[in-house]
Design a protein around this nucleic acid. Structure first.
Lengths: 142, 142
DNA sequence: CTGTGTGCAAACACTTTGCAGGTGT
DNA sequence: ACACCTGCAAAGTGTTTGCACACAG
């Protein structure tokens, strides 16, 4: 589905800024933080607008957000054609380069909570070193 | 094990501030954020010292830290007599009152990561409404 | 006595809010 | 035309850094 249709389907206005951000998230396919997004974008985008845009996309269900261990929120577009609820998979965070990856090949486990609690959602972050950084480190040792 | 012995065992100096913070974390048993700690403490503790103290305790392995969806880090003392690695359990975050609970009755699941990635740790946060807040809300509806 | 820890001040980074002007429908 | 969106400025919040003094070992 293209960007404009996704926005319309979510009952959002088709503004230039939203299209650019959504397009970027879809292209990259992995969760990006505010700073990553603004550094990748070639054209300038006001940081406040970026905050609001990402919030809007998340609220509309087009994107999901996860928090890295560094405290930064990352946003990832959610393909409307795929099944499953958005963000219902573990995320991998590389502590070296800060990149995050969706581990979409598995679902989050069912968690038993204490009697009386109601669960609205969950998020699982696995952290370590991604294959790229690992290769780099090994190369330096040679 | 008492607070002083825990600090000594971790090769840390037995300062008053560290004893107070560690004591509080042990008493509460659930992960507390910076702001929660400083509002609970009766005696004044410099916020910078609190940051550094919590960092020190975490580095020393006496405490573990988890991040809520609100971005705030919570710290929880880790009983040195118990088995298992610190923090290797899901955490429940109440979106209403902001309190966090350790779900120590279960371990974190094993996650399959993409070939080449190395895992150093993981953290699972379940969020929703705790039993206390749920009861309160229900009471108000009556 | 020596090196680490603490408290204060200030710098810093990140996020939110208010408002005037611009844009999509 | 109207309501919503954007960009700028400024305020607000949370965290880190530098340094002089205090304290544990």
């Amino acid at each position: 589905m293209d960007v404009e249709k996704m926005l319309s389907a979510a009952k959002l206005r088709n503004t230039h800024q939203r299209k650019v951000v959504l397009q970027l998230l879809i292209e990259k396919g992995s969760p990006l933080s505010h700073s990553e997004i603004s550094s990748i974008l070639t054209e300038p985008l006001d940081k406040v607008t970026l905050y609001r845009t990402l919030q809007t996309l998340t609220d509309a269900g087009i994107a999901h957000q996860v928090q890295g261990l560094d405290g930064a929120w990352r946003f990832c577009a959610h393909d409307p054609d795929s099944e499953g609820c958005p963000g219902d998979h573990p995320h991998f965070l590389c502590l070296h380069c800060g990149k995050m990856f969706c581990l979409t090949n598995q679902r989050l486990p069912r968690i038993e909570v204490t009697e009386g609690m109601s669960v609205e959602g969950k998020q699982l972050v696995v952290y370590g070193c991604c294959s790229e950084c690992k290769t780099e480190t090994e190369d330096k040792l040679k």
